[in-house]
Amino acid sequence: MRLEYPTNIKIVRVPCTGKVDVIHLLRSFEKGADGAYVVGCLEGSCQYNNGNFRARKRVEQAGEVLESIGIEKERVRMYNLSSGEGTLFAEYAREMDKIIRELGENPVKKAKRKMDAA
């Protein structure tokens, strides 16, 4: 299909989104990511029944933790699609990219740069 999506997105492959934990999402921010999103199978079609539901909960939890320390919870998101929906994958990637660009740089990254410079 040769679809294009923003090149600033780094894909981390996991066997199932159920593998993704809150700490993985938080660490990505600690390491300087401006946003993180999880793309899981469609709800109801998880090979392991509820892996994607668990992922959604953890995304919500990560959002709450971020919010509690003053970082916009919109920087973490969950998307669902089937493996055949490449167009949608690209669309979600562009949407996420747009959301994060509007929110701007991860404040932690900015603060770290400032501190390192000082």
């Binding site: 809150v22 700490i23 320390i69 932690v108 501190m115």
Partner: peptide, 17 residues
């Protein structure tokens, strides 16, 4: 793990080492 990560980010964000 989660709390430590959150706290590290919080203090960094607030310019505190």
């Amino acid at each position: 793990e989660v709390l430590a990560s959150a706290l590290r980010m919080y203090f960094l964000n607030n310019g505190k080492k």
